[in-house]
Design a protein around this nucleic acid. Structure first.
Length: 293
DNA sequence: GCGTCCAGGTCTACC
DNA sequence: GGTAGACCTGGACGC
């Protein structure tokens, strides 16, 4: 039976700014209908055995979640929705940090700053590795293959993101030949085995007591995760004191703040130092202003 | 059609 | 700790 759920949203929330916050809305099992402004996602239960296709849209005072069936408990769907739209995040510190900076006034006005994420750190971790050292088209290709070939079916051709167990059930060769993951293939096989066996718990990064540098070091122990990937993941678990500089972010900075000339990372870091623990989120908002405003 | 470059980097060996 | 070279894929580009 189809099911509709409703979740309230906080005052400083923008559905559009959150969905457009970065490219995650284009990576399966997310999908974006820009005409009707509806975000699709295939939810799954913790065991990865049940999957349900859902559509999230704005409704006065909150978001509406339309589900193809009621296979998964409503409280599980609501928890996932709250997590992926960052409904519990308190961004007052960000808005205080940009206060007084005219060029960033729009961040507060547009209620920007909530970075769309997946319901699990596991999914964000795998997707982040898929963004490294390749074009965005290839990232979409790899993530699409993972969902298509290893995800639990939700009906009508829709599939969920694969569980660690599902990803641990295939070999490194599968990642190379079927997922087209190239040199990342042994990394995925090793990572999936570690998470499926309980040796690694990425979900624990969400509420870790470790200081950010130590958590970053822990993240970098995962093969395929370097400085950029770790800092991107830190943003997705709510820590914004790393800039997560990659070639795209650097090129945008050169265009916007350095007369289209290249410069050192140190200069970029100096530019955003004044925003303190929010600097990683400030640079991201600054470089993606055109997407949202 | 073919070759080259490079994109939302990381790892390893070596110094 | 810093750096060079290797690593995969596939789209864009020049010829």
């Amino acid at each position: 039976m189809p099911l509709e759920l409703f979740h309230k949203t906080p005052a400083h929330f923008s559905f559009r700014a959150t969905v457009y916050s970065h490219g995650w809305c284009e990576l399966p099992p997310f999908g974006l209908d820009e005409v009707n402004w509806r975000l699709k996602y295939v939810f799954r239960d913790a065991a990865g055995k049940k999957a349900v296709f859902g559509i999230i849209s704005e409704k006065k005072g909150g978001v509406l979640i339309e589900l193809a069936n009621s296979k998964i408990a409503p409280q599980h769907i609501l928890r996932d929705t709250r997590h992926l739209l960052r409904l519990d995040d308190d961004l007052r510190g960000l808005y205080e940090a940009v206060d007084g900076h005219d060029a960033l006034k729009w961040v507060t006005e547009k209620r920007a700053g909530r970075l769309l994420r997946s319901p699990t750190v596991w999914e964000d971790l795998v997707k982040t590795i898929c963004t490294t050292n390749c074009s965005w088209a290839l990232t979409k290709n790899m993530v699409g293959n993972l969902v298509e070939k290893l995800g639990a079916p939700a009906g009508k051709g829709e599939k969920a993101f694969p569980t660690p167990t599902a990803m641990a059930s295939v070999s490194s060769d599968f990642y190379r030949e079927e997922i087209r993951a190239g040199y990342r293939s042994p990394y995925f096989a090793e990572l999936a085995e570690a998470v499926a066996s309980g040796k690694l718990d990425p979900e624990g990064w969400l509420h870790s007591d470790l200081p950010t540098p130590e958590l970053k070091t822990k993240m970098k122990r995962v093969k395929g995760v370097g400085d950029y990937a770790a800092e991107n993941l830190l943003k997705l678990v709510g820590r914004y004191d790393g800039l997560a500089l990659d070639s795209w972010l650097r090129s945008q900075f050169y265009k916007k703040h350095n007369a289209e000339k290249t410069c050192s990372d140190k200069k970029i870091e100096k530019h955003y130092k004044k925003f303190g623990e929010w600097r990683g989120l400030v640079i991201w908002c600054d470089m993606t202003e055109k997407w949202i405003s």
